[in-house]
Amino acid sequence: MEVTGRVKMVEQTKEVGSSGFRKRDIVVTTDEQYPQHISVQFVQDKCDLLDAYKVGDNVKVDINLRGREWTNPQGETVYFNTIQGWRIGKVQDGASAPQGQAPPMPAAAAFEPAATFKEEDHDDLPF
């Protein structure tokens, strides 16, 4: 899966717990009719990938969805979801447009007109 858009925020790397676990978040704003601000978390050695990115960069982030189950002290089971990034790359302006849009068509003047076309001479039907 991937998220494409413009970098809104890049956090500093944080160490969590005593085991040396590292995490770093980036927020990417999608380029669509209703833009979404997607927080993507990079962990451990992947945190360093974000050093090359700044606010305003157009990026494509490859992600995995992660889910965890936790039982609190009261015995209730709680579920957490995380969007975890594993690769990021810059894209050129305009390349972050929503997929499914066709590229612009060239002007009609770019095509050479048929000089001697007669409808009765043209038959490309397979039957």
Rank of each mutant, 00 (worst) to 15 (best):
M1F: 04
M1T: 09
V3L: 04
G5N: 01
V7A: 01
V7S: 02
K8P: 00
V10I: 13
V10G: 05
V10L: 06
Q12C: 08
K14M: 13
G17A: 02
G17F: 03
G17I: 00
S18D: 15
R22S: 11
R22V: 11
V27F: 03
V27T: 13
V28S: 07
V28F: 00
T29A: 15
T30V: 09
D31L: 07
E32F: 02
Q33T: 14
Q33C: 13
Y34T: 14
P35R: 02
H37M: 13
H37Y: 12
V40F: 00
V40D: 13
Q44Y: 06
D45K: 12
C47I: 11
D48K: 06
D51I: 05
D51T: 06
K54P: 00
D57Y: 00
D57S: 05
D57K: 00
N58T: 13
V61R: 00
D62C: 07
I63P: 00
I63F: 00
L65F: 01
R66Y: 10
R68H: 09
G75I: 10
E76Y: 04
F80G: 03
N81Q: 08
G85V: 12
G85S: 12
R87V: 06
R87N: 14
G89C: 11
Q92K: 14
Q92D: 14
G94D: 07
G94Y: 06
S96N: 15
A97R: 15
Q99F: 01
G100Y: 02
P103V: 09
P106V: 07
A108H: 01
E112D: 08
E112N: 06
P113L: 03
A115I: 02
F117P: 00
E119Q: 07
E119T: 10
E120F: 02
D121V: 04
D121E: 15
D123A: 03
D123I: 04
D124Q: 01
D124K: 01
L125H: 07
